[in-house]
Computed example of a mutant assay.
Amino acid sequence: MQVVKRSIFKLLLISFFTLNISAQEIYFPASGAWQEKEAAAYNLDFTDAVEFAKANEYSESKDLRQAILKGFQHEPYHEILGPTKRRGGPAGMILKDGYLVAKWGDIKRVDMTFSVTKSFLSTTALLALDKNLIADFEDPVINYVWDDTFEGEHNSKITWKHLLQQNSDWSGELWGSYDWADRPPKEGGIDDWRNRNLNEPGTHFKYNDVRVNVLAYSLLNVFRKPLPSVLKEEIMDPINASSTWRWFGYENSWTTIDGFKIQSVSGGGHSGGGMFINTEDMARFGLLFMNNGNWDGKQLISEKLIEEAVQPSIPNENYGYMWWLNADGPRQWEKVDKDIFYAAGFGGNFIIVDRKEKLVIITRWLEPSKVEEFVQKIYN
């Protein structure tokens, strides 16, 4: 009996140390610091990829106000409603096991990040579900938002999941912007776009910033406090992010909740606003997702929800909960692992997460058409 007890104790001891060593495999940077290692220590060489990123800067104006107006000039009624900022040059970081193994450009400079913001927004939705503020993403949003945002036969069917996967086909106007005027088809005109047939929620993917902003507004109604405050308290402070990031809405995207005037943030910089952040803080956010929502032993987002967020949606196999997926599909990067997922924004802003190889790749102001080649250089 004594021998059996000693054997059990030995197995428990081995298990404890194995788990402890496993937990220590990932390095989590303290506030204002980041330990560096040579890529060669992992038998890796990112020299070609870094030089490629520096040599293929986003080709449009550094005056992002002008770049935005040019990029969306085909949209009726498009205008700048939120703040913008003149951008810096190419910048980036590559993490291996959390350690900084490559960097270029000014990684402390705060810049707009456009639709990378969507992955921060979907994270607040994960938090709402974790905290039981939302019971189920399959719930109709009208059960949580009492005003007329989701009234009507079509909009009342829309669930949280539909909004997160951008397949809701929500129809209406928010903050002076109409859903049909956002990235309209090349064919037809205003009357055609306004009077289109609506798709059943969950059946048709459409990248649409107005509907993303509807999600942000709906989450604001659930939390009853500004989403930047939620993100700061629940995610950015615990991962030791800097105090320099900001998340903006529009000059007209204000609402009153509990007697307080609160700005509803935007999910991108399509009309200005969105997340303004430095490269280091983007890398911390990516590292959290690479480690399945766990930061140095503290589970900030449940692992189950992280996994759910990166599952393909039915109408778009390359899109989850506002994360792009490298799964089989038209947007897949060739010769790169299919399990990689990433946040992507206008102007060549990317947070790329590889959980298998424990890599996080941040690149900023890379010509968007060159990103696949850039990523291939990292892996080949």
Rank of each mutant, 00 (worst) to 15 (best):
residue 1 M to F: 12
residue 2 Q to F: 13
residue 21 I to D: 10
residue 22 S to P: 00
residue 25 E to Q: 15
residue 25 E to D: 12
residue 27 Y to T: 08
residue 36 E to W: 02
residue 38 E to R: 12
residue 39 A to S: 14
residue 39 A to N: 05
residue 44 L to P: 02
residue 44 L to G: 01
residue 44 L to F: 04
residue 49 A to F: 00
residue 51 E to P: 00
residue 54 K to C: 07
residue 58 Y to D: 10
residue 61 S to C: 09
residue 66 Q to L: 11
residue 68 I to K: 03
residue 70 K to E: 12
residue 77 Y to C: 00
residue 77 Y to K: 12
residue 78 H to L: 06
residue 80 I to L: 11
residue 81 L to W: 05
residue 85 K to M: 15
residue 86 R to T: 15
residue 93 M to S: 01
residue 100 L to T: 00
residue 102 A to I: 00
residue 108 K to N: 14
residue 109 R to L: 09
residue 113 T to N: 13
residue 113 T to D: 03
residue 114 F to K: 08
residue 116 V to K: 04
residue 116 V to S: 03
residue 125 A to L: 15
residue 129 L to N: 07
residue 133 L to Y: 13
residue 133 L to S: 06
residue 139 D to Y: 02
residue 139 D to S: 11
residue 139 D to R: 01
residue 140 P to A: 08
residue 141 V to C: 06
residue 143 N to R: 14
residue 146 W to Y: 14
residue 146 W to K: 15
residue 148 D to A: 14
residue 150 F to L: 08
residue 152 G to R: 06
residue 155 N to C: 11
residue 158 I to L: 08
residue 159 T to N: 05
residue 164 L to A: 06
residue 168 S to T: 09
residue 172 G to T: 12
residue 173 E to F: 02
residue 177 S to R: 14
residue 178 Y to M: 11
residue 180 W to Y: 15
residue 180 W to P: 03
residue 181 A to D: 09
residue 187 E to Q: 13
residue 187 E to F: 10
residue 189 G to Y: 05
residue 190 I to K: 13
residue 192 D to I: 05
residue 192 D to M: 05
residue 204 H to K: 13
residue 207 Y to W: 07
residue 213 N to E: 11
residue 213 N to I: 10
residue 214 V to C: 07
residue 214 V to Q: 09
residue 219 L to Y: 04
residue 223 F to R: 01
residue 231 L to M: 14
residue 234 E to S: 11
residue 237 D to I: 10
residue 239 I to E: 01
residue 243 S to Y: 04
residue 249 G to K: 01
residue 254 W to K: 12
residue 257 I to W: 03
residue 259 G to D: 07
residue 264 S to E: 00
residue 266 S to I: 07
residue 267 G to W: 04
residue 269 G to N: 06
residue 269 G to T: 06
residue 270 H to E: 13
residue 270 H to S: 09
residue 271 S to G: 07
residue 280 E to V: 05
residue 284 R to V: 00
residue 290 M to S: 08
residue 298 K to N: 14
residue 305 L to R: 14
residue 309 A to S: 15
residue 309 A to Q: 08
residue 315 P to D: 01
residue 317 E to W: 02
residue 322 M to Q: 14
residue 325 L to E: 03
residue 332 Q to K: 15
residue 334 E to V: 11
residue 334 E to N: 14
residue 335 K to T: 04
residue 336 V to S: 04
residue 337 D to H: 11
residue 342 Y to F: 15
residue 342 Y to T: 01
residue 346 F to R: 07
residue 346 F to K: 02
residue 348 G to L: 05
residue 349 N to E: 12
residue 352 I to V: 15
residue 356 K to V: 10
residue 358 K to M: 04
residue 361 I to M: 06
residue 362 I to L: 02
residue 364 R to C: 07
residue 368 P to I: 06
residue 371 V to W: 07
residue 373 E to K: 14
residue 374 F to E: 02
residue 376 Q to A: 06
residue 379 Y to W: 03
